[in-house]
Design a protein around this nucleic acid. Structure first.
Length: 504
RNA sequence: GUUCCGGUAACUCAGCUGGAUAGAGUAACGCCCUUCUAAGGCGUAAGUCGUGCGUUCGAAUCGCACCCGGAACACCA
C-alpha cells in the first residue's frame, strides 16, 4: 500500500488509499498494522487518512545505521552498469558558464548511482572534431598567425572572431567546412594544427574539471570515436539513403537524421552515432545517460531512435537524455558579460571552496530541467538556503566534536524530544530523497533534504548547550546525534560533489 | 506553422503518478549573543497556484481551449 511523506503536523508518513477504495476499512488496516509493526511505527486515523508516526526505535535505528556504516540507509536496487556522458567542453574554445551545469549535474548523478551500488563509466566527450575546429584553423591560416606560439588566451579570442566571420562571409564558411572535412581525413597540415590546439586546451580543461571535483574515467572526445565511423555507417547501411547528396537515416520522426554532409564531412551526429556504438561494444552498459542542455533534446531523440533501429545498442539498453535548462541572468536572458560576451569559467570558479559550494548548491536547489537565473552574489550570500549555510553548519558540528573529546555512542530513545526527533526524521527523509532522485534523475530533493537536516540541527544547537550538559547519558546522546548528523551531511555533500571544510 | 518546456508570495524557487491548513529561502518588520563559530536561532506579514471551461467526493496537480515567456524543428553542436 503506497505511503508518502506527510506534511501534516506531527505525522511522518500518510496513506490515503482508503479514500479511493471503498473496500478498504482504514481502521482495520491501521489496527492490523499496529499489531504487526508496533516497534516500527504507530498508525492512527484522522479524516480517513492513515497516518504513521515513526517509533523512537525506528528513528534511532536509522542513526545507528549511519554511525555504523558511515552512509545513509538507502533502498536496495538491482545493480546496473551505467554509462555517463557529461561535461562536453570544447577544444579551442574557452570553458564558460554554460559548461558548468553539465559538469556538476552529471558528476552528482553519477555519484548518486554509485551510492546505490551501480557501476558507472564516465566520459567527458570533448567537442573536438566539428566545424568549430575548421573555423579556428581556417582563421589561423588566413591571418598567418604563429601556430607554434599560440596560447589558450589567443584561442579564447580567435574562436569568437572566427565564428562571427563564418556568419558574415560565405567564402570563409566554405573554407572552414572544407578544412573540417580535410581534417577529418587526417590531412596535413590541418591534423598537425589540430593536435597542437587540442593539447593546449586539454591542460586547461582538465584543471577546470578537477576544480569542480569531476572525475571522468575517460577524457575522450568526438575525435576518439572517428575510427568507428566507417564501421557504424556500414552497420546502418540497410536503413540509410542519400538525400540531396547527404547521407540520412529515417528515425521515425518528422525529420531524418543527417549522418554525413554533402561534402563527405562528419557532423556531431556522426560522432555521436559512432560513440554510442563503440561504447556499447566496449562496455555493454545497461543504460546510457547523457547530460546536455535542453536544446539538444531533439538531437538525442534522433540519436536514440537511430541507435535502436540500427541495433547499435542492445534491445533492452536504456537510453536517457537529461536536458538541463540554460543559465540566465537576472533579466532571464542567456548569461552574458556586460559587453555581450560569454561569462568565462574563471569568472565564476576561482577555486575558493566556499564559493564553489555556493555555486553548486544554488544549481542543485533548482530543478535540473528548468532554466535558472544565476546570480553569483545571491548564490554566495552568507545567509539562507545556500551552500555556505551547509558548510557552516558542518563546521559548527565539527567544532563541538573536536572539543568534546572521546565519548560513548549512545542513542537513548527515551531522550528524544521535539528538536531531536526532527533531526532523526530529517535523516530518514534525506535517505528517502535519494530514492526520489534516482527515479526522477533530479537532485533538488537531495539538496533540500540536506538543507532540512542542517536546519534541524541548527535549531537543536541553538536550544541547548551540548558541551555543558552535565547529565552524562544526555551528553552522549547529544554528541552521538552530532556525529550522526555530521556523517549524514558529509555523505550528502559528497554525493553532490561539494567539498566541505573544517573551519571557516 | 508543428512539437517540446515553463508561468505558484515583491524576488528566486519547491510541491505536479489528485488528497488534509499550497511550502522554503531572500527582501520587509519584530525578538534573541557575559554562554559550544550570530555565516546562527525564533517570530510576524506576504498567494485570484497565467486565464476559462471540464472530470472528481476532492484539482496547483488530470483533460480541453486560450494568453504570455523560452526552445527545437536537414548538412551547427
Amino acid at each position: 500500500m503506497p505511503v508518502s511523506v506527510s506534511e501534516f503536523d506531527g505525522v511522518d508518513f500518510q496513506c490515503n488509499e482508503c479514500l479511493k477504495r471503498f473496500d478498504l476499512d482504514a481502521q482495520t488496516i491501521a489496527d492490523r498494522f499496529n499489531k504487526d509493526n508496533a516497534d516500527f511505527a504507530k498508525a492512527f486515523i484522522k479524516n480517513k487518512f492513515i497516518n504513521f508516526i515513526l517509533s523512537n526505535k525506528t528513528l534511532t535505528d536509522a542513526a545507528h545505521f549511519i554511525l555504523r556504516e558511515k552512509k545513509l540507509p538507502l533502498a536496495a536496487v538491482k545493480p546496473q552498469k551505467v554509462f555517463f556522458d557529461y561535461g562536453g567542453a570544447n577544444i579551442a574554445k574557452a570553458m564558460h558558464i554554460g559548461h558548468l551545469r553539465s559538469a556538476i549535474i552529471g558528476e552528482a548523478l553519477k555519484r548518486l548511482f554509485e551510492d546505490f551500488g551501480h557501476t558507472t563509466v564516465s566520459d567527458v566527450y570533448l567537442g573536438d572534431w566539428g566545424l568549430q575546429m575548421g573555423l579556428v584553423i581556417a582563421y589561423l591560416l588566413e591571418n598567418k598567425l604563429d601556430i607554434d606560439g599560440i596560447t589558450l588566451n589567443d584561442l579564447n579570442e580567435i574562436y569568437p572572431a572566427a565564428s562571427k566571420l563564418k556568419d558574415e562571409s560565405e567564402r570563409f564558411y566554405n573554407l572552414a567546412s572544407d578544412i573540417t572535412a580535410r581534417l577529418q581525413k587526417l590531412e596535413q597540415p590541418y591534423y598537425g594544427i589540430w593536435e597542437r590546439l587540442r593539447k593546449i586546451s586539454l591542460t586547461d580543461i582538465r584543471k577546470n574539471y578537477e576544480l569542480l571535483n569531476c572525475t571522468f574515467d575517460y577524457y575522450n572526445g568526438e575525435s576518439s570515436y572517428q575510427k568507428y565511423t566507417a564501421e557504424v555507417l556500414e552497420k546502418l547501411r540497410p536503413y540509410t539513403n542519400l538525400s540531396d547528396g547527404a547521407l540520412i537515416i529515417e528515425v521515425g520522426l518528422n525529420v531524418p537524421m543527417i549522418l554525413q554532409k554533402r561534402n563527405g564531412g562528419n557532423l556531431y551526429a556522426t560522432s555521436d552515432v559512432a560513440a554510442i556504438y563503440a561504447r556499447a561494444g566496449e562496455f555493454t552498459p545497461d543504460r546510457f545517460i547523457y547530460i546536455t542542455d535542453s536544446r539538444q533534446a531533439f538531437h538525442f531523440k534522433q540519436l536514440f531512435s537511430c541507435a535502436k533501429i540500427g541495433k547499435l545498442v542492445g534491445k533492452d539498453t536504456e537510453l536517457t537524455h537529461i536536458p538541463y535548462g540554460s543559465i540566465n541572468d537576472k533579466d532571464g536572458r542567456p548569461f552574458k558579460t556586460r559587453e555581450g560576451g560569454t561569462i568565462k569559467f574563471s569568472d565564476v570558479i576561482t577555486g575558493d571552496k566556499i564559493q564553489l559550494a555556493a555555486v553548486k548548491f544554488a544549481d542543485f536547489i533548482n530543478n535540473v530541467r528548468k532554466d535558472y537565473i544565476f546570480d553569483l552574489d545571491k548564490a554566495t550570500m552568507n545567509e539562507g538556503k545556500t551552500g555556505v549555510y551547509l558548510l557552516y553548519t558542518l563546521v559548527r558540528i565539527k567544532s563541538i566534536l573536536s572539543k568534546a573529546g572521546k565519548f560513548d555512542i549512545d542513542l537513548d530513545a527515551n531522550l528524544i524530544d521535539d528538536d531531536t526527533r526532527k533531526i532523526f526524521t530529517s535523516i530518514i527523509k534525506l535517505a528517502e530523497s535519494y530514492t526520489i532522485a534516482l527515479n526522477t534523475l533530479t537532485l533538488n530533493n537531495i539538496a533540500d533534504g540536506i538543507y532540512d537536516l542542517a536546519a534541524a540541527f541548527s535549531s537543536f544547537y541553538a536550544n541547548r548547550k551540548i558541551l555543558k550538559e552535565e547529565d552524562g547519558g544526555r551528553r552522549n546522546f547529544y554528541l552521538s546525534i552530532c556525529l550522526a548528523v555530521k556523517t549524514a551531511l558529509e555523505f550528502g555533500l559528497k554525493t553532490l560533489a561539494i567539498t566541505f571544510v573544517d573551519k571557516m
